[in-house]
Every structure is written in structure tokens, then in C-alpha cells.
């Protein structure tokens, strides 16, 4: 008699923990053959709220980590993902991808994580400036993360869209609350397991499954979320989220990209989620002494 398979319970990921949804509700996304993939948490507004609290708590320490250290942690995500490559390929195939496409997507995801890992301690060097002001002051501008970033993951992919939005955000020191693809949620939960095992501090990435339609509004209107990024959303929902974002002047970006393309990774995805801070300090010039003799 063949061995009975142990089925995986897909849970959500908040503050480094894997709770079930607070609502107790589930939905069953279907595979390409119309068969239920799994029971997936239909997260609620309260889950969003809890995730934002976790993200806010994580933001300070994460943004203050040494950039080099953030780079190491991001690279560690790539290492862990590589180790579970087969699992992701399998899940992508269960969700309808061909083997080639699934393998490509996983490999590209890993490489994209490595790409952003490398940026951690470089983007600020590239985008900062020392500003030659006319007065006797030292003046420089550098980048700082915006804070808690809401992410409505790309809906037509399970993994690459998710990775392409999360990585530039955390690379720059933000923490995230991510709404996974509603129809293709498996990789999001497994990705959370990768995050969990790869030194990313609790709360930096929080992943919720369920209906973006339902949760995104809560995220967009949340006064403690500093930015909202979405991808390929239908116009009506995108506009609705944009309107809700105005109340605390959330920075909002909607990327219309095909993330499976190799070059859909760039510095500006990082800098979009950065504030520019300019600092002034006087320069004392004693008695007109100069550096020449």
C-alpha cells in the first residue's frame, strides 16, 4: 500500500509567527484542472492590523541595521530559496506552470534576490550627494527608508511578482505587509517559511493571503502605513487605493511590469521607497586659515 502523503497547512505570516487567520475563514484556490490546491487563510482586516503593528515594531531595528548586515541577510534568503528550489517548482507547477516556466521563475527569483542583496550597501552611495552650499555649512543628502510599506503582490504570478516587490522595499530598510496573489498563493506561504529560516528579523516581512480586494483598502487607508506599492492592478481598484492613500499622504506606486522579464530589477524600485534627508552643519573657519601654507 502506498504511503499516505502528509498535506501542508498553509498559514499566514505575522511578526515571525505562523498564525491562522484571526477570522477563521478559508478559501480554496483551484489548480489548472479545477481541483482545490489547499485550504488558504482568508485573512481579515484584523490580520492586516496585526501585521502593520508587527511591521512598525520591526521597522526601527531593521532600518538601523548596518547596510552590510542587511545585505548578508538578503543573500541568506537567496541561499535558503535555492535549497528549496524543488519545492517552489513543484508548487508553481501545481498552480499551472510548465516545468520550464516554473524552473525559470524560481531561478530568476533567486537571482533577483541576490541582485537586491548586493544593492543594500550601495544604493545610498550612488544616490546621496554632498551639496556645495554657498554658506559655511557642510550639507549632505542621503536616503532613508519610508517606514512600513504595504505591498499588494502581483496577482498573475505566485513567486516572482512577490519577490520583485518585497525585495527592493526591505533592501532599503523598510518593513512590509504583503498581500499575496489571491489565486496563486502557495509560493507566498512557502516563501514566508524561507524568510522565517533565513535570519530576517520577525516583522520585517509579513505575508497575508486572501482577497486583496478586501484587505488592500484597509492597508491603503491605514494611517500607520507609509507607502503602498502595487503591480498590474485593475484601474478601478488602483484608483480606489490611491484615494484611500491620501489621508496620510501615503506614497503610492503602481508598477505595470512583466516581472518575468530579466531586466525588471533596478535601482529606482529601491529609491521609490526612500525619503531624501538633507542635513546641515556649520563649518568653523578659524581666522581664515586655509589648507595651504
Amino acid at each position: 500500500m502506498s504511503r499516505l502523503e502528509v498535506l501542508k497547512t498553509y498559514k499566514i505570516f505575522i511578526g515571525g509567527q505562523f498564525p491562522r487567520t484571526e477570522s477563521g475563514r478559508y478559501y480554496k484556490p483551484l489548480d489548472s484542472k479545477g481541483k482545490a490546491l489547499a485550504n488558504i487563510c482568508l485573512s481579515s482586516r484584523k490580520d492586516v492590523r496585526n501585521a502593520v503593528v508587527a511591521a512598525r515594531k520591526a521597522f526601527g531595528p531593521w532600518s538601523e541595521r548596518a547596510a552590510f548586515n542587511r545585505g548578508q541577510i538578503l543573500y541568506r534568503i537567496a541561499e535558503m530559496l535555492e535549497g528549496r528550489q524543488a519545492q517552489f517548482v513543484d508548487e508553481l507547477m501545481r498552480q499551472g506552470s510548465s516545468k520550464v516556466a516554473a524552473t525559470n521563475e524560481v531561478n530568476l527569483s533567486i537571482d533577483r534576490i541576490v541582485y537586491y542583496a548586493g544593492w543594500c550597501d550601495k544604493y545610498n552611495q550612488v544616490l546621496s550627494s554632498v551639496n556645495p552650499v554657498s554658506s559655511s555649512h557642510f550639507n549632505f543628502s542621503s536616503l532613508e527608508p519610508m517606514g512600513v510599506v504595504g505591498v499588494v503582490a502581483e496577482q498573475s504570478t505566485s513567486l516572482i511578482g512577490l519577490v520583485s516587490l518585497i525585495l527592493p522595499a526591505i533592501c532599503g530598510g523598510n518593513s512590509t505587509v504583503v498581500l499575496a496573489s489571491e489565486k496563486l498563493p502557495l509560493c507566498a506561504v512557502t516563501f514566508a517559511e524561507v524568510i522565517h529560516s533565513s535570519d530576517v528579523p520577525a516583522g520585517v516581512i509579513n505575508i497575508l493571503t486572501g482577497s486583496p480586494e478586501e484587505m488592500a483598502a484597509t492597508l491603503a487607508s491605514h494611517m500607520d502605513v507609509n507607502a503602498l506599492i502595487t503591480s498590474n492592478l485593475e484601474t478601478k481598484l488602483s484608483n480606489k487605493l490611491a484615494l484611500l492613500s491620501v489621508d496620510n499622504l501615503k506614497r503610492k506606486f503602481d508598477y505595470e511590469e512583466n516581472w518575468v522579464e530579466k531586466d525588471k530589477q533596478a535601482l529606482h524600485y529601491i529609491s521609490d521607497l526612500q525619503e531624501i534627508k538633507t542635513t546641515w552643519h556649520p563649518i568653523e573657519n578659524v581666522g581664515g586659515a586655509s589648507s595651504s601654507y
Binding site: S129, N131, S134, N139, I276, K277, T278, W280
Partner: peptide, 15 residues
Amino acid sequence: VIWANCYNKFDPTSP
């Protein structure tokens, strides 16, 4: 904008 040991300084080169 953070002014350290100064305040309300402006310059065209300064974001």
C-alpha cells in the same frame, strides 16, 4: 531637512 547647530538655511543646491 535637519539643521544641526543652525536653522532655516536654504541653498539652491540643497534638496
